[in-house]
């Protein structure tokens, strides 16, 4: 029964919170929607921490897309064997994970040690950084240590299909039952993190200004256009 809760109910609750929460924040709390940078208080450590973390998380995101969203069959069809995939995933994943963890540790230390940054951080900020750190540390551990020293776990046949099945509303929760605990913990922690997105600084990830390079440099707007 518990697996229904963890692998069916929880993901949908999180999904609902994520979608509704984000919509709510978009509609009613625009004023709080920003990348809450503390660069104005401190630059040196931010430079290393933030860049490491953000690029790391971008790689990690791509990695997760490749590992979870894209089915194993796709790779096989392309002629990429499991060995090649895993070697690639472990190296790339470890690299990304380490970047994220190092970046986060720097950011966390900075947040604690640097007075002005600390004083201007909220509970949500600490919560976010710590939770991301936990998730990332678990992920990195799985990739760089568990996969290498314990065993190479083929999540593309368990976690991947389960995750994709969430989107077709036919959750194959039983696939998760055999997954090693450490993976389960990583997944559940991630879901907690997802649920917190609408309420924390993480919300800024949805506003990556991808349209910027394509728009005209100068923007004219009419007063009425703007004020609706």
């Amino acid at each position: 029964m518990s697996s229904i809760f963890w692998w069916v109910i929880l993901p949908y609750i999180v999904g609902t919170i994520l979608v509704l929460g984000t919509l709510y924040r978009f509609a009613y709390r625009q004023m709080s929607w920003a990348a809450p940078s503390t660069e104005i208080h401190e630059k040196k450590w931010l430079r290393i921490g933030s860049v490491c973390f953000h690029y790391g998380i971008l790689f990690a995101f791509i990695g997760h897309v490749m590992g979870i969203l894209i089915p194993r069959g796709f790779y096989l069809a392309l002629g990429i064997t499991d060995e090649v995939y895993h070697a690639f995933a472990i190296i790339g994943g470890a690299f990304a994970g380490l970047l994220v963890v190092i970046g986060l540790v720097i950011l966390l230390i900075r947040k604690i040690i640097h007075t002005r940054v600390r004083l201007h951080s909220t509970f949500a900020d600490f919560f976010t950084v710590i939770l991301v750190l936990v998730v990332a540390a678990l992920g990195t551990y799985i990739t760089a240590i568990y996969d290498v020293f314990t065993r190479e776990y083929e999540y593309r046949t368990t976690i991947g299909p389960w995750f994709r099945s969430l989107f077709t509303f036919q959750p194959k929760y039983h696939l998760m039952e055999s997954v090693p605990t450490i993976f389960k913990v990583h997944v559940i922690a991630s879901f907690l993190l997802f649920a917190s997105i609408p309420f924390t600084r993480l919300i800024h990830m949805f506003s990556f200004p991808i349209r910027y390079p394509f728009r005209a440099p100068q923007q004219y707007r009419s007063r009425s256009h703007f004020k609706r």
């Binding site: 349209r211 100068q218 923007q219 707007r221």
Partner: peptide, 9 residues
């Protein structure tokens, strides 16, 4: 990047 700054017509 966000196009938040603008010049009023």
């Amino acid at each position: 990047p966000s196009g938040a700054l603008y010049k009023r017509d």
